[in-house]
């Protein structure tokens, strides 16, 4: 079968075949890389510095990580608010929901079990 030339108009090809829009641009990839490097560098600095209030560092790292994931999604995976992207965004929202349920739910349940667990020494005392 002959390949459809990229220059041909939309009328002489079947619907949905040969739509060749470019994905992203050099500028968007470079901006994405710059943001990602900045956020990664910030994560390393935040984790190593002693200038910050220690209990807050974990939350800061989480925020930086989520920001960097957003940068990757927008600049590298090209998740946007465009019309052709609605399904991708909805699927992403569902994925985030499931991931949150799995991670937060596991941590919650296991922490609860751990708190209600009788220590081995207490069991020994009860047996005596």
């Amino acid at each position: 079968m002959a390949e459809i030339p990229a220059q041909s108009g939309p009328k002489d090809r079947a619907p949905g075949i040969g739509e060749n829009e470019a994905t992203g641009s050099l500028t968007s990839y470079t901006i994405g890389l710059a943001f990602a490097l900045l956020l990664t560098g910030a994560s390393f600095v935040v984790s190593q510095t002693s200038l910050l209030w220690a209990p807050g560092v974990s939350a800061g790292l989480a925020v930086l990580a989520i920001a960097q994931m957003g940068v990757h999604l927008v600049f590298f995976l090209h998740i946007s608010t465009g019309r052709d992207n609605t399904n991708n965004v909805l699927a992403l929202a569902f994925g985030v929901l499931i991931v949150t349920l799995v991670v937060a739910g596991s941590l919650w349940i296991i922490a609860n079990l751990n708190a209600n667990m009788i220590s081995p020494s207490a069991i020994m005392q009860m047996q005596q």
């Binding site: 939309p10 619907p15 949905g16 075949i17 739509e19 060749n20 829009e21 019309r83 052709d84 609605t86 399904n87 991708n88 699927a91 992403l92 569902f94 994925g95």
Partner: peptide, 26 residues
């Protein structure tokens, strides 16, 4: 028929393929 997902016609194959692969990635 215009090949866009919002124009009423079928979405371009490239968009559909990327969506399916995105589901796998998720």
């Amino acid at each position: 028929i215009t090949p866009t997902s919002s124009g009423g016609g079928p979405a371009p194959v490239r968009i559909v393929v990327a969506f399916g692969f995105w589901i796998f990635l998720l």
